[in-house]
Design a protein around this nucleic acid. Structure first.
Lengths: 333, 333
DNA sequence: TTGTACGCGTTATCAC
DNA sequence: GTGATAACGCGTACAA
């Protein structure tokens, strides 16, 4: 701008106004300025604009892990919606670590972004320490939590109804007449695992006293521990299994097949997170879809509305999306 | 800073210096200022600092698709390395579209980032139009291209040796004594598909005139077109197949099994991109690992070195990583 | 040892 | 219709 002002022998502010098509500038000057701007391929400096308006048009997204189909679809949803509103997405990974989550938040909170969308790391949920989130909200930075959330922090939230998802899946297994149903989950500190376990238990108890046996295996983490798995499946002669993620489900199916079980004839399988693995498994896996795209889009929508709303009303909502059962070949039609 | 200067009745610059532990400030003042800074939880505003230093400490990453294991591992590699150097990662998705790629680049090029890491969209490679990249490099913004690259632009690049990968995989199939080997790929406008096809052909021709039949199916896109697939596999009675991605490989295995073929006894299968699908497929898929993590890390390293190097030497390098054949159960040991 | 003044690139306000 | 000035938050050369 400085350059083109000198070139045309006008003031910088005239240039600024001309570029914004201000009414107060003569058509003649405007045309000249705009021509030069095109010539020099002028683009306003985002940083300077941000400093002025105190708006960065950036959204900070912090997730535990990006090599994970669900989070990936959420990011895509966020990105898609944010872009239509002129926002960029800054992605940081906590890598399931509390410390990294804190560092990343502080890094971004110092003016780099207008708001946060995040899903808690397992480490954070285990520690149960949310001071970094509270600080951010107290600074007035809008925050939307998705999927792995906490009640300790006052902010907008969006989840799928994990309990309902597990309920629907378990009900499907019960309706098939299954009698020895296993749930393979993680320890309860993960909010989603807890809700899914509740849904599982509720479905069975709602089913009345029909002699259904319920077996629960709680894995220490989202990763696979083959030996625990094998021991559990060897000990119990199940006829159905619900897993809280795809990897567990695929692994269970593989080991069951190895033991000579037929799927879905002998054992019926359902997994959470309807990702690529479910679709391309053999047999393809009946799954609870978590609608990551939709969740990301909604989260971005909620956040941007908060960012752009003038009033400081402190009303927070928690949006609950309905999961969907996608029936494939690992259950009986 | 303004606030705490007023509070302590000193000037803003005194505060600034005290916070940076400048020698010229008395210990007394420094302690007072630093105490207040901690109290108010002061953090310098990134935007203002960026404007001053002309350094944002942000890296812009533009990829065609985030719901894709390979890109996801690359991002993880970039993020990991960038964070250790104090950089944030801004992720934008081109969604395989030329227009989105251009829009995103322009958006970020106006001061939001210090450099780009990107992989070309298929649309861009098809159009063969790289003016947006050239403009950016001419502006002096460092650029690192990975995986899907072009020779039209002068910049640092990093790829795996796709030709070698295909060569090694094909050789493995030849060593098993396979005689009717198929390659399932996409059309040649994707730089990687082209290189892989070359490697495939080279391996077979290097093998001498041993009566090996080579069949090539070129799919119109990365997505699945079931009918083309089925027609091809019905027409040719192959005994080995190399696919340029996991989805093709999994789908091929599924259909071959449906036709009563045994894998790997009757047909041997290898796929590119060693992702989750390969690991958890049934049988597990022998794959060419592309080392996305390593590629991301190297790309970030190259970019940050360019960003932080004072001299404007115009030397660009192309780094070529070696792919690795991961043997699993879809080939004969 | 501390404070003043200026600049980073932009825009809004107000004076001319 | 145009231009000067201040301000966003920070760093720093220079003056006091």
């Amino acid at each position: 701008m400085k350059h083109i002002a000198k070139e045309l022998d006008v003031s910088i502010s005239t240039v600024s106004k001309a570029l914004k098509n201000s009414e107060e500038i003569s058509r003649d000057t405007k045309e000249k300025v705009q021509a030069f701007a095109k010539l020099y391929n002028y683009k306003p400096n985002n940083i300077a604009v941000s400093l002025k308006n105190k708006r960065t048009k950036n959204i900070g997204v912090i997730i535990p892990d990006i090599v994970h189909h669900f989070f990936t679809t959420v990011i895509r949803g966020i990105e898609k919606f944010a872009n239509t509103k002129g926002y960029n997405v800054i992605v940081c990974l906590s890598d399931e670590s509390f410390d990294k989550e804190v560092i990343n938040m502080e890094m971004l909170a110092n003016g780099s972004i207008d708001g946060f969308i995040m899903s808690l790391s397992s480490d954070t949920q285990l520690k149960n320490d949310y001071n970094h989130l509270k600080e951010v909200t107290e600074q007035g930075i809008p925050l939307v939590l998705f999927d792995r959330i906490t009640n300790e922090v006052q902010c907008d939230k969006i989840i799928i109804d994990d309990q309902l998802g597990a309920y629907v899946a378990t009900k499907k297994l019960l309706d098939e007449g299954r009698k020895k149903i296993a749930l393979i989950t993680t320890r309860d500190y993960l909010s989603v695992s807890k809700a899914r376990t509740e849904g599982f238990l509720k479905a069975i108890s709602d089913n009345g006293n029909s002699g259904v046996e319920k077996l629960i295996l709680k894995m220490p983490s989202m990763g696979m521990d083959e030996s625990l798995f094998v021991a559990f499946l060897d000990e119990h002669d199940i006829d159905a299994v619900l897993c809280v993620n795809e990897i567990f489900a695929i692994s269970a199916m593989r080991y069951l097949k190895l033991k000579g079980k037929k799927i879905p004839e002998d054992v019926s399988c359902i997994g959470f997170t309807d990702g690529l693995l479910s679709k391309y498994a053999n047999p393809s896996l009946t799954a609870i879809a978590q609608h990551g795209d939709e969740m990301g889009k909604m989260a971005a929508k909620m956040l941007i509305e908060k960012i752009e709303s003038e009033n400081e009303e402190e009303t927070y909502i928690t949006k609950i999306l309905e999961p969907t059962l996608i029936e494939r070949d690992s259950t009986v039609k």
